[in-house]
Design a protein around this nucleic acid. Structure first.
Lengths: 194, 194
DNA sequence: GTAAGCTAACTAACAAGTTAGACAGCTCCT
DNA sequence: AGGAGCTGTCTAACTTGTTAGTTAGCTTAC
């Protein structure tokens, strides 16, 4: 492993760290386990990333960025957006857990990034609503949180979904359309899917 | 403190443990801190409760039981139930965090207790639906999780609510009626409140 | 020969769990 | 009455294993 390829090693560390933090959180994660899983020496973690905390922050930011990149927001098709969030949450249970840990363990984290994304979505919803006729029943801010809560209620990080009714989580197709339907019922939008 | 009052000491430990676990989770909690906050010796924790894990389990069960005791389920008034869950979640941020930690850190925890409560609610909803006319659009299991997700989306443990839009969390009355309205929209039930 | 990439071995602090025993109040024997 | 002995409650100090972070130096490519 003396083949000096720092970038590849960094990537391996980040991947291993992602798994470890996702499974155990910051306090429960073990730096030695990350190094072993990455197949490198522990000291490299401290050379490339300064500390356990910094490593977690890096992992979190990298993965949050993926969320914002991969999840297109469509203010004029909120049920479809909910369905996409649902698919993402089901496909990436590790990332969901990571975000949950971050919310519980970090007092202040990622505030800037997330607030920007939130504001952009709210503005887009306001614009879509204004173009669309009468004011909807709910404020955009409320709707956004409600949609996210619904779409992620069956993800690995939720206390309600998979743990209470594992039967439903086994039928993601049904679940996806039901979530979209529920969002349509709240927003008053017509269902767009087939 | 030589006043031999074991019950009071146990209660103090449980209270301190609740705060500590709620703030830091299992892995992040420190037994010494709990003992200090409870104003007693660390060894008493191990005499009264066998280990850190057992102490957490005890705290969790005690508090979960409170949830089931204090939150009446009304299958024929689901918006009202959602509003009550919301109030509870806002009044007990520590308990919400505790449940979130438990979900993330414990592979298997409280399964029996929670499954029983879940089944009872589902049955009650089926009975209410059968008495009420045509089959609703959503299965009771789905509705239950959806309601809980909505009602707790602004609680301290949620990654979406308070962290993204602190403005809304500051107006709990508005939030409560909006949540109840959203649940009414999903369930097709009439709003019961004024 | 030198520098980037890496490792083995180490350290200092910390944290869960344990031990040995102090101290107060009680009972029971005489 | 009064002390021996027991029991329940509690404490200070210790042990033992673990953990984040460091140091000193090896190896390979150019």
């Amino acid at each position: 492993m003396a083949t000096g390829n720092a970038e590849a090693t960094k990537a391996r560390i980040l991947e291993a760290a992602r798994d470890e933090f996702s499974a155990h959180g910051i306090a429960g994660a073990r730096v030695d386990r990350i190094a072993k899983a990455a197949g490198c020496n522990k000291n490299l973690l401290y050379i490339y990333f300064q500390s356990k905390e910094t490593l977690f922050a890096t992992v979190l930011e990298q993965n949050l960025r993926r969320v914002y990149d991969e999840l297109r927001f469509t203010p004029d098709d909120l049920p479809g957006y909910a369905a996409r969030v649902f698919d993402f949450a089901m496909a990436e249970p590790g990332l969901m857990r990571l975000m949950a840990w971050a919310g519980l363990e970090q007092e202040t984290g990622e505030v800037a990034l997330r607030h920007a994304a939130q504001s952009a979505k709210v503005s887009a919803m306001e614009a879509a609503r204004d173009a669309d006729g009468p004011a909807a029943r709910f404020a955009p801010e409320f709707l956004l949180t409600a949609i996210l809560a619904l779409a992620t209620a069956w993800s690995a990080a939720s206390p309600f979904g998979p743990r209470l009714s594992p039967g439903l989580a086994a039928a993601p197709d049904t679940l996806r359309t039901q979530i979209a339907d529920a969002v349509a019922a709240i927003t008053g939008a017509p269902r767009t899917g087939p």
